[in-house]
Amino acid sequence: MALTLLLGSLPLPSQAGPEEDRLAFVGHYQSLFPEVPIAEYANGIYALDEDARAQWLAIEDFPPYEFSIERGSELWDTSLPDGSQLTDCLGTEINKIRPQYPRYVPNQGVVTLELAINACRSAAGAKRWDYSSGDMIDLTAYLAFEARGQELNVRVPADQPGALAAYEAGKRFYYSKRGQLNFACADCHVTSVGQYVRADRLGPSLGHPTHFPVYRSKLGGMISLHQRFFGCVRDVRAKPFELQSEEFRNVEFFLSYMSNGLEINGPGARK
């Protein structure tokens, strides 16, 4: 009876607040790898794997994403059809733009940097960019680069029930098994982090959103965070969602919240 009362009075696990979730999430990795400083998780798997880290640092000597940053910088300075520039719409402090996203906006849901860029282009009479286009990825690479050293600071305001709903939807997606192979994101990136799937080591979700977009050697090009999500969902043999779909934006919102306090260090380079 006393036990029933006690259990009855405990909140359901899924109803824990975002900040409790985040502390538990960080704590999970901390208990698995006590020697790894939390800030290191911004470097993904290279926080955990010495050999891969050495190779990665060698790649970083001549960053394969440099060209993307340069192109992004040119796009930033290009005038839009109505004579305005993106800076008029997105903000004048260039290092403060990337850290404002993803954020929840009532009636719009989770607004990512990509969504904000397209909204600005649209308002200025320019064509919206495809979310897998080189232009979009280059511009986000540039804005990430300019924001290096700023911390992720995603907010789920208590007075906006929609924000909590979006966060909860992203959390639910992250922990749900899907696809013919029946994997949840968490099955690999929480439960099995650091383990090998054939030759590949599974990276931590903590710190995952900080370094995108990334240059992937395997693909010989830059990819966005949502393209990475797309690849994972496809690999568990589920039908992937569209880039910048509500599902993926909610996952980005949840995962970015989990990484709050970590430094933005994009663009990155990955195998």
């Binding site: 359901l12 704590g27 959390k171 922990y175 749900s176 098994k177 949840a184 968490a186 929480v190």
Partner: peptide
């Protein structure tokens, strides 16, 4: 799978 996951996902939440 969707039916199972309606509840099952909650068990996996890191806490």
């Amino acid at each position: 799978q969707a039916d199972r996951e309606a509840e099952a996902w909650k068990r996996r939440v890191v806490r």
